[in-house]
Design a protein around this nucleic acid. Sequence first.
RNA 1: GGCGACGUAGCUCAGUGGUAGAGCAGGGGACUCAUAAGCCCUUGGUCACUAGUUCAAAUCUAGUCGUCGCCA
Length: 580
Amino acid sequence: MNEKILVSVAWPYANSPLHLGQVAGAYLPPDIFARYHRLRGNDVLMVSGSDTHGTPITVTAEREGVEPGAVVERFHRSFLDTFVGLGFSFDLFTHTDTENHWEVTLRFFRRLLERGYVTKQTMQALYCEECHRFLADRYVEGTCPFCGYEDARGDQCDKCGKPLDALDLIKPRCKFSGDTPVVRDTEHFFLDLSQFNEPLKEWIADKDYWRTSVRNFSLGMLEEGLRPRAITRDISWGIPVPVEGYEDKRIYVWFDAVIGYLSASIEWARNRGTPDAWLDWWDPQRPARSYYFIGKDNTFFHTLIWPAMLLGYGDLRLPHDVPANEYLTLEGKKFSSSRNWAIWAPDYLSRYDPDPIRYYLTTHAPESSDSDFSWSEFLAANNNELVGTWGNLAHRILTFAYRNFEGRVPQPAELTAEDQAILDTTAEAFGPVAADIEACRFRAALARVMAVAREANRYLDVAAPWKALKVDRARAATAVFVTLRVVDSLTVLLAPFVPFGSEKLHATLGYDEPLFGTQEIVPYQEAERRHLGLTYHGVSQGVERWVPSALQPGQALREPSPAFKKLDDAIVEQELARLG
RNA sequence: GGCGACGUAGCUCAGUGGUAGAGCAGGGGACUCAUAAGCCCUUGGUCACUAGUUCAAAUCUAGUCGUCGCCA
């Protein structure tokens, strides 16, 4: 019985390219997870999209003197290309500026309103009389009440880093007109989270498999008690509030962004002509599991707010797990786009292959604490581990077999105890590696596989078919056969982590059908709007391929060439020079 | 200021009461099928600090310091 696995991935703001910190935290882990489940023959639905409605986007647009839509289009396209380049196998990567997403969001809003979970409240906000509009926090500048910095933004002080409320700024001024804004009352809709405090406590009570930081953080918030939270804003960019008298207001970006998981699932089903198919993952009466891959800054929205919204809406599946990651630092310091202390995914892909970074960011994944990216460590991990331990093992046995056994998998004679032992060791890895991946312990899973690769190197050194070939061809053939099977198994075990190299080795081993399907960027036309999406066309659906090798003697190999390449030591200096 | 996570070999991490572990890096060696890769041997730690509980603490308790995050 195939399992239905919903892989929900954080929605990136379409106002800058993706950097490696985001890749490590929120985008690579779900792809490993999804590819593993695809190999299992499970039905994966992996969705995400660009968040197009944030204030950061209007800030970027105004700075550049273009429409917000143009900013969105540019970075959405950038995300699509990055995901193709890194091999992130989204079933659908869409964005929030679609008719479908607006419909689903409004349906959500209306139902929560009808059920009394969304309520009206009057709050105070800064209003610029010169511009005739309310000012979003980021559109106000003034003196920081904590450190006295005079150019603090309304949402956060760049000097001391503290989050601010624009109302607390001393001597506030409008970012556009420079005028001093006035405090005005404004009515907004609030999601009354307090009604969900107890239901959420009950729901989290049995989530003992969540990461400790995620669970403790969520329980702590519930202990403090959740408060109503505004879900509309006085801005013009976003989804209009569907209530008379509120035409000038928009739904606050965080509210519609989380709904994207649902709307993207619905869009995916429609795009493929099976409009109800999304229910297989979302109907709580049917068997399925949902996972939300995010960075730790998003935990609150995914373990509390989104579940509250789902409880309020009803008849939808709540998250099974939210494996939030900590942060990645770069050469010991925080990523900072303004100081150019960042590695942008498009830049990386313009110079290097995807597998090395996938490998590095998995072995150094910020799963339990912050971790660091360093170019010298990256180089070492690629050259010593990915290439040295694994790539070389695969290459040496493939070239040896190709040259000495007529390009075919040789016929083995009787297996020795050593032959059987390495085959057993390899076969026995499938279970524990699967368990690690299913528990979202990707770093541990990969380490376990690499331990098998090292064991296989030791086996091959002892078996030494290059020596046996001269005195006992049958023994050499057997050792080559055994090693090829081990390499075949390792190719599958490593496929979720380094899919490009595994795909190449899989073909070299003589298989005609690929391990994975293909990605495609597709234009989707709605009634009036058109958008680009990334989708995935699977292969061998429903077939379990997470199994030890059954490579058959006589299978024709393809001419081997290295699946992974060494990187020149000089790149460390070159890349460090690009930073800062 | 409150809460939480983390702090173990140069680096990345495992280890939750019983004589400190792995991978990578560093040093030495034998080999040569292979991307000068792989294999064997090896150096290296007062387990952040202090006090306590215990026959016994990296592991439990209290406190201190540091890093990160959330909240105020």
